[in-house]
Design a protein around this nucleic acid. Structure first.
Lengths: 193, 193
DNA sequence: GTCTATACCCGGATAGAC
DNA sequence: GTCTATCCGGGTATAGAC
């Protein structure tokens, strides 16, 4: 794992984004639109072709395969999420403080709930690391290090808590009447100093 | 959500398990074997037919569809996991104590790591609640209530932390050199009194 | 009541013509 | 760069043999 520090953008941290042709970019944009609006079942190559006014096989001139489209989407979302989390953390107070933990969790939850299908795509199953820019994954998670004041193990535990609450909320796993705001507060309290 | 209390078995808590024909039971057993050994891509109706020495279409005389097979598997695993977690919690010390939290997390992690494909099946995506016995889901999670001494919000946060750490570990999401034992300890410390 | 054969639909992907 | 034709694999409905 390369040493990447939290910051406002991946590029500022020395992470090199994957270059893509204009047409490939359109494919990825279409994929994002379809996935966000209609979910993963709708994300088919035929559907992406439709969206761009061409036949599905033609897509393969611009993009290697479906997995590559998804990887590109994951790259976009990791970069955006990392930036949002960094913003939240850098405004809330000194590293390691309770307000920072609260701000980080609030921002994390908001991202997940606002884009549930994207959130699942990025966080579920194995990550296609080979297709992602070196260092991007670590950079996007760096705000958690800031929030806990540097302890790696605690940072990973806090990230795990955030992901657990986010994915279970997005997947509708909590019981009907559960007070999710109160649960997120309890989570912040457990990691607040 | 019906009021279900933690206990050694779902039946003891008044949860009624779904009845199934002997042949249907064999189908579910085969599904478990295939899924555990080879993962979700291998879990196809044709493959289950092979396993039982019949053609795939014949399976539909015993089982409504593939989703029902998965739901039956989920039911089995929820019952088993709930029992294991109850065991762990009931031996470790008084409800709400730090040793109980540690024992619960250790048992939870062990279950997930021992059966990663089953763990993903049960915890990923939406739960097919309509196909599950009333109360089973709540019963299987009740040990978390015991572990935190009754606070619902804290119990849900602890469950979320456990799931977050378990799924990220099983999915290989932590960086190469991460000390996962230390992370789980940090998680327990956050929720230990 | 149990199984088989057949067939349909869908989705990913390739080959080769224009 | 786009097309058409085509293959493959997976879920599953139907018809009918025994």
């Amino acid at each position: 794992m390369s040493a990447v520090e939290a910051g406002p953008s991946p590029e500022a941290a020395g992470v090199v984004r994957t270059p893509r042709s204009a047409r490939a970019h359109q494919v990825v944009a279409a994929a994002r639109t379809v996935l966000e609006a209609e979910g993963p079942e709708a994300l088919t190559m035929r559907r992406l072709g439709e969206e761009l006014g061409i036949r599905a096989p033609s897509l393969y001139k611009h993009v290697p395969d479906k997995a590559a489209v998804e990887a590109a989407l994951i790259e976009e979302v990791l970069a955006e999420t990392g930036a949002v989390l960094y913003q939240a953390v850098s405004r809330a107070g000194p590293p390691g403080s309770r307000p920072v933990v609260e701000a980080l969790l609030a921002a994390y939850r908001a991202q997940a709930v606002a884009h549930p299908h994207l959130y699942r795509l990025v966080t579920t199953g194995r990550l296609p690391r080979a297709a992602l820019p070196e260092g991007l994954e670590a950079w996007s998670g760096a705000p958690f290090d800031v929030a806990v004041g540097g302890d790696e193990d605690r940072a990973r535990a806090l990230w795990s808590l955030a992901h657990g609450m986010a994915i279970l909320e997005v997947d509708g796993r909590y019981p009907e009447g559960a007070d999710l705001d109160a649960m997120w507060r309890a989570g912040a309290a457990a990691f607040g100093p």
